[in-house]
Simulated assay, not measured.
Amino acid sequence: MDLLQLRYFQAVARFEHISRAAEELRVAQPSLSRAIARLEADLGSPLFDRQGRRVRLNQYGAMFLRHVDRALSELDDGRRAVREARDTGLGRVSVASETLLTVIPLLGGFRAAYPRADVRLFQSTAEEMDRRLRAREVDFCVASQPLTGTPFESVELAREEVLLAVPHGHWLDGRESVTIPEIADEPFVTTRLGHWQRTLLDRLFAAEGLTPLLSCEGDEPGASQDMISAGLGIGLIPVVSRQVGTHVRVPVAWVRMGAPDCHRVLTLVWNRDSYLSEAALKFREFTTSRPFMTHRLPDPRREHSHDPS
């Protein structure tokens, strides 16, 4: 039994087709078939039920595959650890987040503290983050929605209120709070399905037996505030969006939502079965050992005056 046989077995198990696996591996089909046959001989048991070139994992094959997946994953992690230690000193840390705006201060602070770390950032929906963690494509996700599963561990980073942003001059401009039924006919600027803003909006309306009216669905949550300011609709915006980057001066008015649980919970999520480089371990320590963000609610007088101080 050798490493190449295990790689071949893993590919055949994934495709359950000899020809497709051979094409993926770029090997001759007879060579692949012989390698699988030698592996089965070493184990003393067939791993597949065969129907021509079509094969199906049997109970022994499914059992063996679980161990092979773990073993090859460990080897891949070891290769990655050596490469990262050689190339960057601290290694690499890969982070996925639904919105880049949320993690800019965090990653900026981490890079300043650990300049030898190689930091990679990916923008992903909740579904993509789940897949990336399971496939070990990223070390961490900064998630605004629950990511749950057997291999996942998480820690809460922050809990912040989500406000309603409206254009200046809107009939809600100056209101302290508003309920969902009051805005049932208002057009909303929001994100596509899969992003946390859309999930929150749909949940708040569903609790009242209503469906939101959408004027714009986008992939970049950070652009929502600009579209609201331009009069394209109203929308749910977390407090942090007022305090980071250029959006701090985008002219909108802010209204509290008179609805329960109108907030966002940020969590740091990782796969406990994954290898973590020294850079990744430093990132987790850096992120969880200090307040992630602090927020104060907007002062309407300063929002309307656009005081640059």
Rank of each mutant, 00 (worst) to 15 (best):
1 M>W: 03
5 Q>R: 05
6 L>Y: 01
8 Y>V: 00
8 Y>N: 01
15 F>T: 01
20 R>E: 14
30 P>L: 09
30 P>V: 12
36 I>A: 14
46 P>Y: 08
47 L>F: 13
60 Y>W: 13
67 H>T: 10
70 R>I: 13
72 L>Q: 04
74 E>Y: 07
75 L>W: 07
81 A>V: 10
83 R>G: 08
89 G>I: 06
99 T>N: 07
103 V>W: 00
103 V>P: 02
106 L>K: 00
109 G>I: 11
128 E>W: 05
132 R>P: 02
135 A>K: 13
137 E>I: 07
137 E>H: 13
140 F>K: 01
146 P>D: 12
151 P>I: 08
152 F>T: 02
154 S>A: 13
160 E>N: 05
160 E>I: 02
161 E>C: 06
170 H>I: 05
180 I>L: 04
182 E>N: 05
183 I>L: 06
184 A>H: 03
187 P>G: 02
187 P>R: 00
194 G>V: 06
197 Q>D: 11
207 A>Y: 07
218 G>Y: 00
224 S>K: 07
227 M>D: 04
228 I>C: 00
229 S>C: 15
243 Q>D: 11
247 H>S: 14
260 P>M: 09
267 T>F: 05
267 T>W: 03
268 L>M: 09
285 E>L: 14
289 S>W: 06
290 R>H: 12
290 R>S: 14
297 L>M: 15
299 D>E: 10
309 S>V: 12
